[in-house]
Design a protein around this nucleic acid. Structure first.
Lengths: 202, 202
DNA sequence: TTTTATACTGTATAAATATATAGTATTTTT
DNA sequence: AAAAATACTATATATTTATACAGTATAAAA
């Protein structure tokens, strides 16, 4: 599958969010409003690009006629649980999958691609504990303050993310932990996804 | 739940079919075409009736703004979500059920009978926040220190429970809240169930 | 018995919406 | 270096769509 641009991902996310939240796809104007575009044609052309890449289909002549293709498992989706091995990669590689659980896709605001089993105490002040399962929506798009799964050069970590120009701030929710500053000119870092929910087992 | 008439069922079917087939809800005109009505108001009034019966919701002022409520998906154990009304009863009475969600029964250590939507901040120090859904296993059996849903004489509350002879201690996880002491010789209290897990939506 | 709900036709229209066209600018691909 | 794709603003408009209003008729509930 062809890769999506950052903007195209945002538009796709916007569509997903609308369907999950309201039950129906957005209009061009609604996409513009959510993403800050000032011309309906901004949304239109992104939609056409997504259609060309076979990500969505657009029903001509009908309002809100957007549907997402290859929509995997509308109900009873089986979602893998991935353990964060120290300094390991949180990919969907089968050796990292601890188990699979069935979740109602409508449970969380966005589609859940996997659950990340939390290691460490860096987020305890915001109620995210060791062995909690954080529901992760795979995307490289985020807003400042989002709970993000970030792959740095030598680690995969769950933190609040803030970006300003070439500087990335990964902020823990634990005063005993220091924020991580990353200068994207020197180091690489990639957002794997954002946390959209949490499951805890007592 | 009120019963639907034959025509209302047809309209509801038509909506479901449209969502499954196209990915978005139908317009009034499309409903008319499919069911053979000649006036858009035929569809409109059926939709209003379905809305009144709380089967669907209609987003005013937007096209195709129809969504089906309590959309319980096909498979898996469906578990109700109960909102804790202030001083209300957390029974499984249908009027308290906010929605139903499907969960993998193997997710939590014990069978989940319902989810309790948390109100208040009495447990925040242990990572249980407002609007979190606590998975509750219905039982009146508990161990000291269990997270319990307790019905007191004038409230239903979620606290850690400790029992010693005729004294019951309900302990919050928030230093701003005082523990509740109940003398079972004077007051009644009943354990509705114990918390076996938690789901949080961001 | 009167009201309310159901079940429509028919007409009309303001508002919502898709969509085309004309530009500008930057980046990526060929 | 040229072409194509990306990423928009800005304007316009035909069409889609929700939705109100005016009726008619029947069945069910109060």
């Amino acid at each position: 599958m062809k890769d999506l641009t950052a903007q195209q991902s945002k538009v796709l996310n916007c569509i997903e969010e609308s369907i999950n939240k309201t039950g129906f796809p957005p209009t061009r104007a609604e996409i513009c409003q959510k993403l800050g575009f000032k011309s309906p044609n901004a949304a239109e052309s992104h939609l056409r690009a997504l259609e060309k890449k076979d990500i969505i289909s657009i029903a001509g002549g009908s309002s809100r006629g957007i549907s997402i293709k290859n929509k995997k498992s509308s109900s009873g989706g089986s979602v893998p649980v991935i353990g964060l091995v120290a300094a390991g990669s949180a990919t969907l590689a089968s050796e990292n999958i601890e188990r699979e659980i069935n979740v109602d896709p409508s449970l969380f605001s966005r589609n859940v691609d996997y659950f990340l089993k939390v290691k460490g105490l860096s987020m305890i002040e915001d109620g995210i504990y060791e062995d909690d399962l954080v529901a992760v929506h795979k995307t490289n798009d985020f807003k400042n303050g989002d709970l993000a799964v970030v792959r740095t050069e030598d680690d995969v970590t769950l933190k609040y993310i803030f970006k300003e120009n070439h500087k990335l701030l990964l902020k823990p929710a634990n005063k005993d932990f220091d924020p991580i500053h990353i200068d994207l000119r020197n180091e690489s870092a990639e957002v794997e996804g954002i946390g959209v929910g949490l499951i805890r087992k007592n």
